[in-house]
Amino acid sequence: MSVSNLLENWSQFRHFHPVDDKPHDPYKWAMSIDIDACSGCNACSVACYAENNIPVVGKERFQHGQQMHWMRIERYWPDHDFDFPEQGAEFLPMMCQQCEAAPCETVCPVGATNHTADGLNSQIYNRCIGSRYCSANCPFKVRYFNWYDYPTDETVWPAEMNRQLNPDVSVRGKGVMEKCTFCVQRLRAAEVTAKGEGRIVREGEVQTACQQACPTSAISFGNLVDPESRVHKQWQAQQVEMNVDEQEKDKEPGGSHLRGYRILEELRPYPSVMYLERVRESAI
């Protein structure tokens, strides 16, 4: 990109959705997670390790908070005092929310994290210099830094174990940031196939690893601009809009009966992941 190109295309290079004159077309990958269905079993997280070559850091590094799980299951207890958690715990799968106005993107000094045309928040390992500003600025703290050089660490992928590595995903060396990619390698493969056939990716044609594993099918993933997709239908049914920081339904006095919400929406990152509230029986 030459200077003139840079100047001409600056607005596109730094193109932020949501803007009304640039709707997503034909893809906007999005997710919805029903935390009422989520049982907290961690199958998604393990699937993510398997799919995305995530290093197992070991006890000592985990103790220092250097774990790399792109997808973590958070377990919440009620805020008030209680003797016993009589309504169980709340489990929340948390990974990169692929924000539309991602706080991480603006601050990266080298532009290693960008927005893609299909609504993903990309992370380019080979461009990253490791300033960690993106992580500093991430409200969800879902970006994970390679504190050590895991590919050369004998405890992480010893001989044979390294044969499990997925060749479609780069193995990250020390000093770069990484995070959930919505399994971009699968998305791109599906997009390329669809392109070759002159169509767009169909609903159900591509799954993320977590969605595929989830035993309770709590995770739906798909193309938000495809009216046929389950994700589109869910977002619509829950009246969750991408481009707002407070949903209409949340302004209703007394609350609405809808369950869809996005986490830390008020900070205006416009996350691409909608959560559905947990439900508990009122009769017991």
């Binding site: 220092h64 250097q66 992580s135 703290k141 994970y144 830094f145 504190w147 020390k174």
Partner: peptide, 13 residues
């Protein structure tokens, strides 16, 4: 060895 020896971690980057 890597930045990890500084004992930085995910929130405290």
């Amino acid at each position: 060895v890597g930045m990890g020896v500084a004992n930085l971690n995910n929130p405290n980057v």
